[in-house]
Simulated scan of single mutants.
Amino acid sequence: MGNCPSELLQKKKEPKQLQVKRKPPIDKTEWDSYFDENGHLDKSRDFICLNILERGLHPSIRTEAWKFLTGYYSWRSSKDERLMVDNTRKKNYEALCEMYEKIQPLLENLHRNFMETRNNISYDIQRLYDKDPLGNVIIDKKRLEKILLLSYVCNTEAEYQQGFHEMVMLFQLMVENDHETFWLFQFFLQKTEHSCVINIGVGKNLEMLSDLISFLDPTFAEHLKGKGAGAVQSLFPWFCLFFQRAFKSFDDVWRLWEVLLTGKPCRNFQVLVAYSMLQMVKEQILLESMNGEDIIMACNNLIDLDADELISSACLVYAELMQKDVPEPLKEFFQ
């Protein structure tokens, strides 16, 4: 298993009592200081990832940092090499768009799944709220729809699922160009081991979440297996959207996602996040002896969360795990 911030290991409070004093995020001045005159990183990948876990990224550098975190850029690349990569990614994206235009009639005529998926994407996009609090349009729905369709056609591992439109929207808000949105999303899925994909990683997440509850909190586990039967399995939207709807702002979503990309303090950190969220409603669930439907409702009411507090809570769970004789399946999952 990986490392956890030392100050979190020393905390004794329960997650819900945490008062997180976050250090200032990595800003542009500090980020620029990580590179030598040729644009090679002077700092190690571990150093940068641990700092992102503990501090986060300033919005001004998030796009560039995410290109390293996702694998869009190599950690060993120079500035000139990154310019070449950007150019190549753009050309490859344009080639994919041309290919799609050519095969679209064939897909429409021969593949029923394509028509169904295209209709689902169109429906999801139309329902998507595209304005900021001042009423300004912040996303281009046509461009978003095109990227989602292209992703569906090109990504054989991750078929389109409801919620992808909300995830890709956040990538579109982060970067300027469509090719960046497309490739960052593809690399994000790969880097997170397709953990948000229903037919790949979501089931495993739910299985490991159940095992984690049984190991760390047997009393709660018994209630969930009894009156709360099926409740944990019904939490799949948390993983499908990587908790996007639980936060108070897009910045909080990006904050958690960039931690997931670091692989710190461990792999599959999203399950520790889900466990921490369940702990927030545990007292209410047990006190009111809630059944499955009520438990799901209580979990769905977890909104406007603060990412730093949740990350700190999940790190505390990880610290607790490190002090125990963890069953092999859990150990392998998180190491």
Score class of each variant (00 low, 15 high):
Met1Ile: 02
Gly2Ala: 13
Asn3Trp: 14
Leu9Cys: 04
Gln17Ile: 02
Gln17Tyr: 09
Pro24Phe: 03
Pro25Glu: 13
Pro25Gln: 11
Pro25Phe: 10
Ile26Ala: 11
Glu30Trp: 14
Tyr34Ala: 08
Asn38Thr: 07
Asn38Leu: 03
Gly39His: 02
Ser44Asn: 08
Ile48Leu: 05
Cys49Phe: 10
Cys49His: 09
Leu50Pro: 10
Glu54Cys: 04
Leu57Ala: 07
Glu64Ser: 05
Trp66Cys: 14
Leu69Ala: 13
Gly71Ala: 09
Trp75Tyr: 01
Met84Trp: 12
Thr88Phe: 10
Asn92Ser: 10
Ala95Lys: 08
Leu96Asn: 03
Met99Ser: 10
Glu101Phe: 04
Pro105Asp: 11
Glu108Met: 05
Arg112Thr: 14
Arg112Gln: 11
Arg112Glu: 12
Phe114Trp: 09
Arg118His: 12
Asn120Thr: 07
Tyr123Gly: 03
Gln126Glu: 15
Gln126Leu: 15
Arg127His: 10
Lys131Ile: 14
Leu134Phe: 10
Gly135Ile: 01
Asn136Glu: 15
Ile138Cys: 02
Asp140Lys: 15
Arg143Ser: 08
Arg143Tyr: 06
Lys146Ala: 00
Ile147Ser: 06
Ile147Ala: 07
Leu149Pro: 05
Val153Arg: 03
Thr156Ser: 06
Glu159Phe: 09
Tyr160Pro: 06
Gln162Val: 02
Gly163Lys: 01
Gln172Trp: 03
Met174Glu: 10
Glu176Lys: 08
Asp178Glu: 13
Trp183Ala: 05
Leu184Asn: 04
Leu184Arg: 00
Gln186Met: 10
Gln190Gly: 06
Lys191Trp: 01
His194Cys: 13
Ser195Phe: 06
Ser195Val: 09
Val197Asp: 03
Gly201Arg: 13
Val202Ala: 12
Leu206Lys: 12
Ser210Phe: 01
Ser210Trp: 03
Leu212His: 02
Ile213Tyr: 10
Ile213Thr: 14
Ser214Thr: 13
Thr219Asp: 14
Leu224Tyr: 01
Lys225Met: 03
Gly230Pro: 13
Val232Arg: 08
Gln233His: 07
Trp238Thr: 07
Leu241Val: 02
Phe247Gly: 05
Phe250Pro: 07
Asp252Met: 02
Glu258Leu: 06
Gly263Phe: 04
Lys264Glu: 14
Cys266His: 05
Asn268Glu: 00
Phe269Cys: 00
Lys282Thr: 13
Glu283Tyr: 09
Ser289His: 12
Ser289Pro: 08
Met290Cys: 03
Met290Gly: 00
Asp294Val: 00
Ile295Pro: 04
Ala298Lys: 02
Ala298Pro: 05
Asn301Asp: 07
Ile303Arg: 11
Ile303Thr: 14
Asp304Leu: 13
Asp306Lys: 12
Asp306Asn: 15
Ala307Met: 09
Asp308Asn: 12
Glu309Lys: 07
Ala314Cys: 13
Val317Ile: 06
Glu320Val: 04
Leu321Ile: 04
Leu321Asn: 02
Leu321Trp: 01
Asp325Trp: 00
Pro327Val: 11
Glu328Asn: 08
Leu330Tyr: 10
